[in-house]
Design a protein around this nucleic acid. Structure first.
Lengths: 306, 306
DNA sequence: TGAGCATGTAAGCAACTCTAATATCCACCT
DNA sequence: AGGTGGATATTAGAGTTGCTTACATGCTCA
């Protein structure tokens, strides 16, 4: 009988494209992967990889096996989830990969509530950008990911993932207090296209999105700075250097000299979580999703833009 | 991640009803099974068996796991079969469980042909009655079984098996040469209901079937002897002690003083093979089935009742 | 209450799988 | 051409796992 452990190694090689990438994903040395692969080849009596330049290429037989292995591993995960669901109580260890603003905005409320309700559950948090969360989920390095989707630039999730919405977040415009628009109740998007912008890190999806919004209105954005931290952005705005988009979620107190004003049409982003579909019945997943939604509820029930 | 090897142990316990039966089926000591089970229980964090008198009873959680494990193991077998099919050549090791008359009638032709056509294939033959073949197939101790079904008393195969017909065999009536009916060309079934019968071993499906046929005509069979070997039956017939049903398949030469006469309606039995459905694509299975059918073809093309 | 059968435990041994170090291979660059 | 970096392959040895043997425990039936 084929060893499922060895099949898992082959599966990782296929998923990551090379022995060394697979060995990293499996947290073993390349030697271990190479040996397991060689043993599997001996067992099935046919070659599974061909050396191809500096790397390897899977043979047809290997592709066949990988396809079956996906189904097998999926069933094993399903069995684990069903078992946990049968047990019913929320315990164990769940690895959460979450985007920074969502961490700041929701987890200070959600984590203590979870700790209170389910003392047996250990949530391990990894703060990551969405483009890091997705491979982490694929590789099995995380069990649940919380990401944001700016309107108009949706993330595409890999197959076999299930998503659930947590909340809608809205971005307002942060302006220097002395700016003529800073004391308006509501701005029109077309009014602010020509402002000098302080954007997110270059190449981040948030930066791309800002460009997309403004170009969609037929203008070219003037980005004067690209920074990562919200507090840095606010400091630059306070210094009168430019305007910035400020999500309400996880915003924190505003420094002197900065005002935020809503804009119309609203700059909406979706905060949502996703997990491997096989894990849908895990009570731990359900509990964390519920806690995040509750935290989102108390958040949006609270003060509006300030 | 759950270990599939351990799940297999649990599956065997469920299939055989006790740790010790499982250990026999898996060809390990009961200690090994006990240890693997204990480890699995630790891994899943819930009890899987409850001591119940001298044996054990599976918990709900265990039943759940066993259900998933069946699917998982089935997929693994499927993967192996597909892999062999992809390779295409007929090699390896196939365990055939076959009913004695079929062995005698078909395998002397089929095995040399297989050996000729596929030198890489090793067929391991186990001569068994159908009621032994079925559990052997379920336990995975055999890969292919050849059995017979007397008309009117069909075997019921376990789920997940695929069957293929090999041939129809016909039973004639063996009579002492001096018997008044012995020189007829054809007998009517109703003419022979009252003969003294030499039947198969008491309780065998063949014996049951003989009773069924005669009772179905409203008579009560007179069984004067129950024997296992065909040659013994023929010797008793030659001694004038009674009549016997003699299948044509694997009949061999008749002793002096015995004549066989066909009967109408014919006493038909189906010879067929079955295998686990996951193995349907195994070239080895296909090759053996083909060889058996060819052997059956040359057989029925040959001399009729003699 | 003891015989018989079944599960559970402990110690030792064999097999397996990993790591570390090293060798080999190949594309790409100069 | 020759060197370099990125990748796979090979070896020996260490650590872990899982099996067996032997014995202990628990339960039912007579």
């Amino acid at each position: 009988m084929l060893s499922v452990d060895r099949l898992r190694v082959l599966h990782a090689i296929a998923a990551h494209g090379s022995l060394s990438a697979a060995s990293q994903a499996l947290h073993v040395t390349n030697s271990a992967v190479s040996q397991q692969l060689a043993k599997l080849e001996r067992e099935v009596g046919q070659p599974l990889v061909e050396r191809n330049g500096r790397g390897v290429r899977l043979t047809d037989a290997a592709e066949l096996l990988v396809e079956h292995t996906s189904r097998i591993l999926s069933l094993v995960h399903r069995a684990e989830a069903d078992l946990e669901a049968h047990r019913g109580d929320v315990t164990g260890h769940l690895r959460l990969s979450a985007t920074p603003t969502a961490v700041r905005g929701l987890l200070p409320a959600a984590l203590p509530a979870l700790r209170e309700a389910h003392p047996g559950l250990r949530v391990e948090l990894q703060e990551e950008e969405p483009h890091e969360s997705i491979p982490a989920m694929v590789n099995g390095d995380a069990d649940l990911a919380m990401v944001v989707d700016w309107m108009g630039s949706p993330l595409t999730l890999p197959q076999g993932m299930t998503r659930a919405s947590v909340m809608e977040d809205v971005g307002d415009i942060a302006l220097p207090a002395e700016h003529p628009l800073a004391h308006r109740e509501l701005l029109e998007l077309d009014e602010i296209l020509d402002l000098p912008w302080i954007s997110w890190t270059k190449g981040s999806i948030c930066d791309d999105w800002l460009h997309g919004i403004i170009r969609g209105r037929g203008a070219e954005p003037t980005v004067v700075h690209n920074v990562e931290e919200h507090q840095t952005k606010l400091a630059l705005v306070a210094a009168g250097i430019g305007a910035a988009v400020m999500p309400r979620l996880g915003r924190g107190p505003l420094p002197e000299g900065v005002r935020v004003v809503p804009v119309q049409p609203a700059l909406v982003r979706q905060v949502y979580v996703f997990w491997r579909s096989e894990a849908s019945r895990r009570p731990a997943i359900r509990a964390v999703v519920r806690a995040l939604r509750e935290a989102a509820g108390t958040y949006t029930d609270g003060p509006g833009p300030g």
